Computed example of a mutant assay.
Amino acid sequence: MPDFVIPGDIAHVIQIAIAPVFLLAGIGAFLNVMTNRLGRVVDRWRSLEAELSGCDDARRRIYVTELGILDRRMAHSNRAIALSTLAALLVCVVIIFLFTGQLLHVSVTRAVSILFIAAMSVLVTALLSFLLEIRISSRTLRVARDTLKHRT
């Protein structure tokens, strides 16, 4: 017989907490994608900003327009990152409540339900913000393709 035996109640709480832990892993992967996209937008912003000072008026208008688009993309990315982080924090609180309720023998069913619903709502909002950022990005690429078609 093993020296360490997990009591049935705590084993059940660990089983219940596994799903939110997987959700945390998914949110972490999403945050990784979002921060990489934001980094690329910031890099493009910096390169345009550096070129802005030494260009003619026509090129300046094009760069300023693109900077406006990049600004909107950054806003959506930042919002998605902030909301995803909040969702991850709420999921962490759910896990804490699950274990605290078991340790203190207090019913946390309502609090866990409300927190989980809040986490999912915040995550949905983050995903919508991410979708808007992708939409702006792909619309910009489509315009570039149309410009290339007119030049040939």
Rank of each mutant, 00 (worst) to 15 (best):
L132H: 11
T140L: 07
V124G: 02
R44G: 03
S77C: 08
R37A: 01
K149S: 04
I10R: 13
H12C: 01
F130T: 10
T125D: 11
D57Y: 07
I62K: 15
I27G: 04
G68C: 11
S107E: 15
A17T: 08
S129L: 01
D43R: 09
V124P: 00
N36Y: 05
G8D: 11
S121I: 05
F99M: 09
L48Y: 15
A11H: 06
Y63R: 14
E51W: 07
L148D: 15
G28I: 02
M1S: 12
A11L: 12
F97T: 10
G39I: 05
A111W: 10
D43K: 13
S53E: 14
S137G: 06
R72Y: 04
P20E: 03
L123Q: 11
V21F: 10
V21Q: 10
D56S: 11
G39C: 07
G39E: 06
R60H: 13
C55G: 05
L24H: 06
F116L: 12
A58H: 14
I134T: 10
S138T: 13
L131H: 09
R37H: 04
R40V: 02
L128C: 10
S113W: 09
A58D: 12
L86M: 04
V124K: 06
A19M: 11
R59A: 13
W45I: 13
I10D: 00
S77M: 12
V122H: 08
L83A: 04
V108D: 08
R72W: 02
V93R: 08
A75C: 09
I95V: 14
I117M: 13
T147A: 15
D57A: 15
F99A: 00
E66F: 04
F99C: 05
A126I: 02
T109P: 03
A80D: 01
S113R: 14
R46W: 06
L123I: 01
T85N: 04
A11Y: 06
S121A: 14
I18N: 00
A17P: 02
A118C: 14
E51A: 15
L24I: 06
V106D: 07
T152C: 09
R72T: 07
V64E: 15
Q15T: 11
F97W: 03
Q15W: 01
V33R: 13
E133C: 12
L128E: 04
